[in-house]
Computed example of a mutant assay.
Amino acid sequence: MTDREIIARRIAKEFKSGMIINLGIGMPTASANYIPDGVDVILQTENGGLKFGAAPKKGESDPDLGNAGGEPITMLPGASAFDLSTSFTIIRGGHVDMTVLGALEVDQEGNIANWKIPGRFVPGMGGAMDLLVGAKKVVVALAHTNKGGESKILKKCTLPLSAAKAVNLIITEKAVMEVTSKGLVLKEIAPGLSVEEVVKATDADLIIAEDIKEMEI
């Protein structure tokens, strides 16, 4: 199982029936393929769609149906498509129960940087700033370390922020961490890893939960 699949599967464990959930570009969108049996959620894509499902099988995609990252999607019975202004009315109006976004960095205070690396051209922040303040719960999904093995879970973000103190939960291939008023709490660790290994791979200060669990994937 790849790190991407581990993260996507664990994201889907946060889905609860009745939720309206926005999935951001990248690993978050892959979680649509792992919605637990019996869980009925309404997935939203910021480019203008409600109630999409798993990715279509090869040869069955519709070129007119795609998520915010341009990946093909399936629309479920009762689904709707609409313009960007309607989509962001839903987001800014506080109607999104949870958003799952990728990130370049996140820190123990719940700050998130997911749009710009100084010196590199980027088209803009996109809808991240609206989702980070408009959604009721913010989940960040990212690789635990960068390609050089350096932690992306920091004491303090170094890149330009998308939002301050907006993150509630962090999911990586190694662990699940909750941002609380007391600090960053290590709640779950991936199978085969020890608490010590996760702590060593993490720059942020971690509070170890008394009832720490193994990640369900």
Rank of each mutant, 00 (worst) to 15 (best):
L186W: 08
I117D: 12
P118T: 03
S85P: 02
R92L: 03
A32I: 01
R120G: 09
F15W: 00
S87A: 12
E46N: 05
V185Q: 04
R120D: 12
F82L: 05
I6L: 15
F15D: 00
P28A: 09
P28F: 01
T29W: 10
P160K: 00
T86G: 00
D37C: 07
F82K: 04
T180K: 11
V185W: 02
L104E: 11
V199D: 13
V195S: 07
I170A: 06
D203Q: 11
T29H: 09
G148C: 01
K155Y: 12
K116L: 14
A204C: 15
P28C: 04
R120M: 14
K13C: 10
V195Q: 10
G102T: 10
G110C: 05
V179E: 03
G110V: 11
C157D: 06
A135H: 08
S85K: 15
L132E: 05
D62A: 09
D83R: 02
V106P: 15
K147P: 10
I42A: 14
R92K: 13
E14Q: 15
D3G: 08
K174N: 10
I112R: 00
G183M: 11
L50R: 15
H95G: 07
T158A: 04
G124W: 08
F82R: 06
V167E: 00
G38H: 06
T29C: 11
E216A: 13
V176F: 09
E46R: 04
N114F: 00
Q44T: 09
N67V: 06
A141F: 06
G192T: 13
G24I: 11
I171G: 12
I35H: 04
M125N: 10
L169V: 10
L132W: 12
N33I: 00
L206C: 13
E46V: 13
V167K: 00
N22W: 01
E71R: 14
A141T: 11
G119R: 03
D107I: 03
V39E: 08
E188N: 09
G18C: 10
K182E: 10
V96Y: 00
S61H: 07
K58D: 14
H95W: 12
M27I: 15
M177G: 06
L43N: 12
P28Y: 04
L169Q: 05
A12H: 12
G94P: 08
L193C: 03
E210W: 08
P36Q: 05
M19S: 13
G127A: 15
R4Y: 00
V39R: 03
I207V: 14
Q108R: 03
V96C: 03
M19L: 14
V138A: 04
L101D: 06
S61D: 14
H95C: 11
N111F: 06
A79C: 01
A163R: 11
G26K: 02
K165N: 15
G192N: 15
K116V: 02
L84N: 05
L132D: 12
P36L: 12
V176K: 13
G149W: 14
D97Q: 04
A55E: 09
E197T: 02
V176P: 12
L101E: 11
Y34N: 07
D211R: 05
E173G: 05
S85E: 07
G94N: 11
F121A: 06
P160C: 00
P118N: 02
K136M: 01
H95T: 09
L169A: 05
L65I: 14
N111M: 05
K165G: 13
A8K: 08
G124Y: 08
L23P: 03
V138E: 03
K187D: 07
K182W: 02
M75K: 06
K137S: 13
S162D: 02
